[in-house]
Amino acid sequence: MSGRTRRVHPVVVRVGTTRLFLWLAPHLLPRVDRAAHRLTGGRWIPSRLFLPSVLLTTTGHRSGRPHITPLCAYRYTDGSWLVVATNFGRAHQPDWSTNLRHRPEATVTCGGRTHQVIAHRLSPAAQRAERARILAILPLYDHYAARAGDRGIRVFHLVPRGGGSPD
C-alpha cells in the first residue's frame, strides 16, 4: 500500500464503537473540526489527532450553497484522495456523498492548502480492491457497514482537477 497515511491507534477503534461515541460524534465532531479550521486559518482540525482527515467542500445539490465536512481520507502518492461515506453507520447516506453524486466538483482542504477535485464513485468491485486503504483510514469500517445495513456505503476517489498532483 503506497500513500501517506499513518496507523490509527487501537484506542480510537475501541472508543469509536461505543454507544456514547456513536450517539455524540456525528453531531459534535464536525462542529469542532469546522471551528478549529476557521480559527487556525485552515491549517488544522482536531480529528487529525486520531484519524487521517481532510475537509471536503461540496456544493449542495438543491441549495447550490457550499457545505464543509470533515472526513477521514486516504491520500495517494499521486495527490488524490479516497473518502468513505460511512456516516458512523447511521441509516441514511451522508449529505456530502449525495452532493458529490449530483455535483462531483469539490475541494479538499488539507494542511492549510485547498485543492480542486473531481469525485468518482467506486463500484463495489473497486471498493473491494481498495479495502486495505479503507481500513487504513477507518478501521471501524466493518462495524459501521454492519450498522448501515442495506443502504451500502459509498466510496469516492477524489482526483485533482486536470489530473495532476496538487502538490
Rank of each mutant, 00 (worst) to 15 (best):
A145F: 13
R131H: 08
A132P: 13
R128N: 05
T114H: 02
S97M: 05
H143V: 09
A129H: 15
V155Q: 02
A132W: 09
V108G: 05
A126I: 07
T109E: 04
E130T: 10
H115K: 07
A106Q: 00
I137F: 07
L122G: 08
R151K: 07
R151L: 02
A129G: 15
L100V: 03
F156A: 00
R151F: 03
T98Q: 09
L100G: 09
Q127K: 14
L140T: 00
D142R: 15
G149E: 04
A106K: 06
R131K: 07
R154Y: 05
Y144R: 14
T107E: 03
H143C: 03
P139T: 12
W96I: 04
R147Q: 08
R113D: 10
R131D: 01
N99Y: 03
V117F: 12
L122F: 11
R154Q: 09
I118V: 14
S123P: 05
V117H: 13
S97W: 11
R154P: 09
L135D: 09
H115V: 14
H143E: 04
G152P: 00
R147L: 14
H120D: 00
S97L: 09
D142H: 14
G152L: 05
D142G: 12
R103L: 06
R147F: 06
R154F: 02
L138E: 14
T98S: 11
F156S: 02
L138H: 10
Y141D: 11
L135I: 07
R121S: 05
L135N: 11
A106D: 04
A148V: 04
A126E: 15
R128A: 13
T98R: 15
H120V: 03
I134L: 07
L140I: 01
A136C: 07
R121C: 03
C110I: 07
E105V: 01
T109A: 02
Q116V: 00
T114Y: 01
F156Q: 08
C110H: 14
D142A: 15
Y144P: 10
E105L: 09
D142T: 13
I134Q: 02
V155F: 06
G111P: 11
G112V: 05
I137T: 09
H157R: 14
R103E: 08
P104T: 04
R151A: 03
A106E: 00
A129T: 14
R131G: 06
R131C: 01
E130W: 02
I134C: 03
L138A: 11
A126C: 02
T107D: 06
R128V: 08
S97V: 12
P124M: 04
L135H: 15
